[in-house]
Simulated scan of single mutants.
Amino acid sequence: MVFLNGTSSAGKTSIAAELLHVLDEPYFHLPVDAFHAMRTSKEVAPGELEAVLKRTWLGFHRAVAGMASVGNNIVVDHVLGERWRLLDCLALLEPRNVLFVGVHCSPEELRRREKARGDRPPGLAARQLDRVHAHGVYDIECDTTTASPRDCAERIKDFLPRAPSPTAFERLRRLLLGPAPRSRPGCFP
């Protein structure tokens, strides 16, 4: 699994699209935005929105884990903007099978991209910036300020055969969740 984490507009989806072209084996791109897009377009009461969003993220994590559990290669496109999201992924995913990729972009470029897209609240990426990378541990990092999505995808592809052991997910799981028992419910080989 290639797990791309970065702010909104950082370039995760563009890198994922390129990865599907450059990786040798078949991969599925599972973006969190697709799960949000599947939700009804009806207005959600402001008091209910947070619960609806949290259930969406929890379901997304379990869908990713389910796809991986039966042997699918996955490119995950996510915004780990709250600590519980990272903790949930650490608990659900087999950490030795996750290549954790930090996708960075300068604040100036994020603002430019948000404005050009026009489909995100202004300043969303800037508000996410500190929280998304707060855990500080990745296997590999890309900066899309100057590197193209194709360059980032090629770099990730070249890195996959020499991924570290323990992986960033293994180190983070030990650090944040403690030692893993031999068999954890919800974890897949």
Score class of each variant (00 low, 15 high):
residue 134 A to H: 07
residue 72 N to M: 14
residue 66 G to N: 14
residue 110 L to P: 03
residue 73 N to V: 04
residue 92 L to D: 04
residue 99 L to Q: 00
residue 122 P to S: 04
residue 35 F to W: 12
residue 119 D to F: 06
residue 131 R to I: 00
residue 36 H to E: 11
residue 49 L to G: 06
residue 98 V to Q: 05
residue 97 N to F: 04
residue 83 R to S: 01
residue 71 G to H: 05
residue 129 L to Y: 11
residue 111 R to M: 06
residue 58 L to V: 11
residue 64 V to G: 13
residue 90 L to E: 07
residue 137 V to P: 06
residue 36 H to Q: 12
residue 72 N to W: 13
residue 43 E to S: 15
residue 41 S to G: 12
residue 81 G to V: 01
residue 54 K to V: 00
residue 39 R to T: 02
residue 68 A to K: 12
residue 90 L to W: 11
residue 45 A to L: 12
residue 112 R to F: 09
residue 84 W to C: 01
residue 69 S to H: 01
residue 52 V to H: 08
residue 116 A to R: 11
residue 45 A to E: 14
residue 33 D to A: 07
residue 67 M to R: 12
residue 130 D to P: 01
residue 84 W to T: 01
residue 124 L to K: 12
residue 70 V to N: 01
residue 96 R to V: 00
residue 113 R to S: 04
residue 70 V to I: 12
residue 95 P to N: 06
residue 43 E to T: 14
residue 43 E to I: 10
residue 33 D to K: 06
residue 125 A to D: 05
residue 123 G to A: 01
residue 115 K to Y: 05
residue 84 W to R: 05
residue 92 L to M: 09
residue 137 V to Y: 08
residue 109 E to F: 06
residue 108 E to H: 04
residue 72 N to Q: 13
residue 85 R to K: 15
residue 118 G to D: 04
residue 92 L to Y: 06
residue 83 R to T: 00
residue 130 D to R: 07
residue 92 L to W: 03
residue 110 L to C: 08
residue 68 A to S: 14
residue 45 A to I: 02
residue 43 E to L: 14
residue 47 G to K: 09
residue 87 L to F: 08
residue 32 V to Q: 09
residue 139 D to M: 03
residue 39 R to K: 10
residue 136 G to M: 14
residue 117 R to Y: 05
residue 103 V to C: 14
residue 43 E to P: 13
residue 95 P to E: 00
residue 101 V to Y: 14
residue 111 R to S: 09
residue 135 H to V: 13
residue 49 L to F: 12
residue 117 R to D: 10
residue 126 A to R: 07
residue 84 W to E: 08
residue 53 L to N: 13
residue 70 V to M: 07
residue 56 T to F: 04
residue 131 R to T: 12
residue 86 L to A: 03
residue 125 A to P: 05
residue 118 G to W: 02
residue 115 K to V: 03
residue 125 A to M: 06
residue 33 D to W: 04
residue 95 P to H: 10
residue 51 A to V: 10
residue 31 P to G: 15
residue 96 R to E: 11
residue 105 C to T: 01
residue 122 P to K: 04
residue 57 W to G: 00
residue 98 V to K: 07
residue 130 D to I: 01
residue 55 R to G: 11
residue 54 K to N: 02
residue 45 A to Y: 14
residue 114 E to R: 02
residue 105 C to Q: 00
residue 42 K to R: 09
residue 93 L to A: 01
residue 80 L to N: 12
residue 99 L to T: 13
residue 113 R to K: 06
residue 51 A to Q: 13
residue 63 A to P: 02
residue 70 V to G: 04
residue 81 G to S: 14
residue 95 P to G: 03
residue 115 K to A: 10
residue 104 H to I: 00
residue 71 G to E: 02
residue 119 D to I: 03
residue 83 R to L: 03
residue 50 E to Y: 07
residue 62 R to W: 13
residue 83 R to K: 07
residue 77 D to Q: 08
residue 40 T to S: 15
residue 56 T to D: 13
residue 46 P to C: 11
